[in-house]
Simulated assay, not measured.
Amino acid sequence: MMSVNRYRLKHLAQQGHPGANRVQFLLDRPDRLIGLILIGNNLVNIAASSIATILCIRLFGDAGIVVATFGLTLLVLIFSEVTPKTIAALHPERVAFPSSLLLKPMLTLLYPVVASVNFITNGFMRMLGVNPAAAGSQDALSSDELRSVVNEASSMIPSSHQEMLLSILDLEKVTVEDVMVPRAEIAGIDVQDDVKSMIKQLSQSQHTRLLLYRGEIDDAIGFLHARDIMQLLTKNNQETDKAEIIRSARDIYYIPEGTPLNVQLLKFQRAKERIGLVVDEYGDIQGLVTLEDILEEIVGDFTTSIAPAPSETAQLQADGSVLVEGVANIRDLNKEMNWQLPTDGPKTVSGLIIEQLGDIPQYPLCLRINGHAIEIVESTDSLVKRVRFLAEEQTP
Rank of each mutant, 00 (worst) to 15 (best):
E355I: 04
T69A: 01
N236E: 15
V263S: 12
D144P: 03
I65Q: 00
L146N: 09
F389V: 13
F79I: 07
T348F: 11
V117A: 08
I353Y: 06
P364E: 10
L146P: 02
G71M: 04
S167H: 06
L103R: 08
L33D: 03
P364M: 04
A20Q: 01
I37R: 08
T290L: 03
A314Y: 03
G320M: 05
R29T: 01
V349R: 05
E172M: 07
L171S: 04
N21Q: 14
S116Q: 10
C366Y: 12
G61C: 07
D251S: 12
K272V: 12
L146M: 14
R94V: 09
L9Y: 07
E81S: 05
G320R: 09
V174L: 13
V324W: 02
L169M: 11
E355T: 13
L333Q: 01
R274S: 12
V114E: 01
V67Y: 01
V174S: 10
A328H: 05
G129R: 00
R214P: 02
I306P: 02
V195A: 05
A243M: 14
F79T: 12
L72D: 02
N122K: 05
L323I: 05
M337D: 03
N329G: 05
L110E: 02
G258K: 04
Y363F: 10
P361S: 06
S197K: 14
I157S: 08
Q15S: 12
V322D: 05
K272N: 15
L74N: 00
I246H: 05
G136E: 14
E325K: 09
T343V: 14
E273F: 04
P361M: 02
K196P: 04
P18Q: 05
S49M: 03
F223R: 09
S321Y: 03
L277T: 08
L266H: 15
G326W: 02
V117K: 03
S49L: 08
R270E: 15
Q206T: 11
A88I: 01
L26N: 04
P342E: 11
Q394L: 12
I255D: 03
R147K: 13
L261E: 02
A115N: 13
L224A: 11
E312Y: 06
G326T: 05
V150S: 06
T73A: 01
V278S: 07
A52Y: 01
I34F: 04
V279I: 15
F60I: 06
V387Y: 02
A271K: 15
M180Q: 10
E93M: 11
M2Y: 15
L224T: 03
V130F: 03
A187N: 14
E163Q: 13
N262G: 02
F223P: 06
V176A: 13
T208H: 14
R94C: 06
A271Y: 14
Q317H: 09
D284I: 11
Q269S: 13
G40M: 08
